[in-house]
């Protein structure tokens, strides 16, 4: 795909210096190929657009929306109900005096914010552990991998929930850090595998033979070659973190007020799921959208980086 193919069918083409083709072949770098493959993956591109709109909704929305999440609206409530049906003024209605649209925007924002912190921290830990383990092998590798196995034995959500119980004050950042603390093992194993195979390649041997130090080989020679799996796993980690956070908050073990998240709104709204669906189903829908788009984007990235197992040919 990258190199122009000469198929020697034409006798003239064989003559040196006078290569003539019916069409010109543009040279593409590796990154250009990857980006091209990704942009040709339709579900992934649609998901990119939807996810971008979700980000706008979550981060820019609250700045422009006329009602704030904590603004108490004094509207007449019918009978003994504490909610009002949706209208143009309030697209998701009003619940307990608050505009649900503003609540959902803020919840989405917190969910994405938590997920991004989780991803950055857990991918950093995972890559560090995997790289050290895979590059140095031997005793270091055994210790780190036994530790990884140990962390995998403890159920992820339960461990985070247990630690989160004791957090007072602002909870979302702690929740994100705990989720990262117990969520780096998968990526560590992937990166270790990559390092184990790449460290035996000729270019690493060449670097070693000219006297490059271990950190230099790790950062300059091997790490850039593992960027594909890192990007794919980081993308999927965002989706995983959003769902894990939502699960914990839904169980009542995640974020606590004044913080919020999609899971928290769902937990509050679940008692009215059949009578007043807006506070329940809108955040559930947001959750589905985030999870689906992230998975499609991850799928597209995987196909783009690893053409061997592709389903989409570009």
């Amino acid at each position: 795909m990258t190199a122009p193919r000469s198929d020697g069918a034409e006798p003239e083409a064989q003559q040196p210096g006078s290569v003539e083709r019916e069409f010109t072949v543009q040279q593409r770098s590796q990154w250009k190929t990857i980006i091209r493959r990704f942009t040709h993956h339709k579900p992934a591109m649609i998901s990119m657009v939807v996810f971008f709109l979700l980000m706008v909704f979550a981060f820019a929305g609250p700045l422009f929306w006329k009602y704030k999440y904590d603004q108490v609206l004094k509207k007449p409530l019918g009978g003994n109900k504490d909610w009002i049906r949706p209208s143009w003024e309030h697209p998701f209605g009003i619940s307990k005096g608050y505009d649900v649209f503003a609540q959902v925007m803020r919840g989405t924002q917190y969910s994405i914010r938590i997920a991004l912190v989780v991803t950055v921290v857990s991918v950093s830990i995972g890559v560090a552990v995997g790289a050290i383990s895979g590059y140095f092998r031997g005793f270091t590798d055994s210790v780190l991998m036994r530790f990884t196995d140990l962390m995998l034995v403890i159920p992820y959500l339960a461990a985070v929930a247990a630690l989160q119980r004791n957090v007072k004050g602002s909870t979302w950042l702690w929740l994100a850090l705990f989720l990262a603390m117990f969520g780096w093992m998968g990526i560590a194993r992937v990166i270790r595998g990559e390092f184990l195979s790449l460290r035996e390649k000729e270019f690493v041997e060449a670097a070693r033979s000219v006297g490059a130090s271990a950190p230099r080989i790790i950062f300059k020679h091997i790490l850039p070659n593992t960027l594909g799996p890192i990007i794919v796993n980081a993308t999927l980690a965002v989706g995983g973190a959003v769902l894990a956070e939502a699960a914990l908050s839904f169980l009542g073990l995640g974020v606590k007020p004044p913080d919020t998240s999609l899971g928290k709104i769902i937990e509050v709204g679940k008692s009215k799921a059949t009578t007043y669906p807006n506070e329940f189903w809108w955040p559930v829908l947001m959750l589905c959208l985030i999870s689906l788009t992230i998975n499609f984007i991850g799928d597209g990235l995987r196909d783009a980086f690893d053409p061997k197992q592709n389903r989409v040919r570009a």
Binding site: L243, A246, V284, C288, L292, N295, F296
Partner: peptide
């Protein structure tokens, strides 16, 4: 089957369970 499996695989348990229940 691949598309269906992918969609179900991506949907949160919370959404599937709530849909079935409510």
């Amino acid at each position: 089957a691949t598309t269906g499996a992918f969609l179900l695989y991506s949907l949160p348990v919370l959404a599937v369970g709530s849909f079935l229940k409510f």
